[in-house]
Design a protein around this nucleic acid. Sequence first.
DNA 1: CGTCTAACTGATAACGTTACCATAGCCATA
DNA 2: TATGGCTATGGTAACGTTATCAGTTAGACG
Lengths: 340, 340
Amino acid sequence: MEEQPSSTPTSRPSMRDVAAEAKVSVMTVSRVLHNESLVADATRDRVLAAVEKLNFRRNEAARNLRLGREAGLIGLVVANIANPYYSELTLGVEAVMSAHDRRLIIANSAGSVEREEDLVSDFTSRRVEGLIVTPSGREQSFLHRLVREKLPLVLAGSPPVGVDADCVLVDDFVGALDSTRRLIELGSRRIGFLGNPPSLYTDAERFRGYSAALEEAGFEPTDRHVRRFTSDVEGYQQAAADMLNDPQPPTAIFAANNRIALGVLRAVVAKGADVLVACFDRIEVADLIGVPLIMVTFDADLLGRRSAELLMDQINRPDDTTRRRLVIPTVLSERNISAT
Amino acid sequence: MEEQPSSTPTSRPSMRDVAAEAKVSVMTVSRVLHNESLVADATRDRVLAAVEKLNFRRNEAARNLRLGREAGLIGLVVANIANPYYSELTLGVEAVMSAHDRRLIIANSAGSVEREEDLVSDFTSRRVEGLIVTPSGREQSFLHRLVREKLPLVLAGSPPVGVDADCVLVDDFVGALDSTRRLIELGSRRIGFLGNPPSLYTDAERFRGYSAALEEAGFEPTDRHVRRFTSDVEGYQQAAADMLNDPQPPTAIFAANNRIALGVLRAVVAKGADVLVACFDRIEVADLIGVPLIMVTFDADLLGRRSAELLMDQINRPDDTTRRRLVIPTVLSERNISAT
DNA sequence: CGTCTAACTGATAACGTTACCATAGCCATA
DNA sequence: TATGGCTATGGTAACGTTATCAGTTAGACG
């Protein structure tokens, strides 16, 4: 038969219960739990026995309240945890934070700026020690009050707009520039672009890189094969098919992310077209698809790690108000492209 | 010039600071924050102005301590958050918990049972209201003390061993059974199996389903084309290549998960072999690879949702000790297979 | 004008923990 | 035998919040 603790049956035992059980004061219990030496062995044993018997666990919330420090929680707001980009980023953040003995509270904004705001507010109430946000909107002035209150804050994936915060970015511009250069080097002259609307920083940068490569090659800018809109895989597939059916079809297509690339690849395979494809993000089985492909990848785990490190830096040096901006490099890789 | 709150410059303002600013007692501040009607309009306005000025946010930890209730935190321990299976599961858990106004503390066990134990212990100290674990080991008797203390607990993906807990499972057996049946129906007689060691519940079940299909078709059991071991994509690719190079090669291969399937597909494409492939989990661009493929998929998001719902059920009905076991169905889909 | 009620506000204690100070023994030393 | 300095333990207050009870007004009514 289990014996219920003396206080409420449902709630967990407190130090008081342990103290009563061991016939000592709560202070002695506290001391034993802190491994202090100023406790007689016999007393220590009695306390430990009581702890074991009642299955006592220290209430960290009360402890942190008394110690006047934060609860060792870090808030992470991502747009969609099921997206590999965010989940790899989360893995990186978690690894660094675990090493610093911090836990992660995580929430999904689902791309809604309003929800992003609510979550940040909720996290603040919970007294998180710091906050990492992957912003969904074009600007984040709602975060300004946090910065004013010196709550450590790092933006991951987008630069701060309307708020002065640290951030870690992907080198979207250079990635797009290099891959488009490579398309040109491989002989393409008409290169299509399929992407999201330019209001998103990442997509604006990728388009900028694409454009810069065309410009430096001396190509006339043409809007003919540029489509920037929000859709699903089918929508992008249709757009790519339209491009390929043009009387002057592109000889290469740049896809701004992996969802778009999927649509492009489907259209290319369906038509059996002889087209080069370049894209951001990894296509897992790229080598098994016959289409020649240039991939611009980056280490999302590293992005998460760097963000977490910046945050720990802010936490450890609260008086240092210099803002940092890190950039994660991109890597070019090729599949099904015959050696030049 | 910002004015620092009266107490410590670094720490956030408390109700006391607000009360001093508004020249009222802390109780009045508390009442205003609770939207109680028994406050004069003028007083309420003064308090709200002070709250605004000092940027006050209620300390939820202290509040919950006083109210004697949990902090509205749910612990989630996953093996690898970057794996799509776990990240989709996480998305489902988060959605349900958000709807119940709970936040998620999440941590990565990296498949280590020892770390799993530490994390569970840490979460308990933080007074989580409940715990969802995706177990890495064969048994979870270390969770028994939690159940004894009536801490709500749900296992996701594996059945409880050594502990009496709710769980949500995938119908691994039926998924493997049906897909193997389909391979047989399509004319295969020699069907290889590539999987993880049988010590993992999931893999044991999948092998059981595969075996049952062979048995009911009256095939002689043969170990010749069965390989069950832990490796990476390259390792499984090699194993599949070995099978295909056998004097009596299989006419179909069952791959127990998507990493294994990747290796198998690479081997099949490399050899240009005419082989059917069946696998667990989704291969995103399956239709773009020429290989005929049968996929057994399931909704990991739903798995997460169901787990979260079971947990909320336990939280809301602490006296109901009946244990539940839910099973998520699998779905068969085919790619590149000519109509029968 | 006294008393009663209602509306408003404040004082106090408590949630579980720990820092700080106090105190009771005990032994060694002068 | 005082004195001092240990060791082992306990008492108290405080972290930020809220429930409960106790005032303190002001107007209403006889």
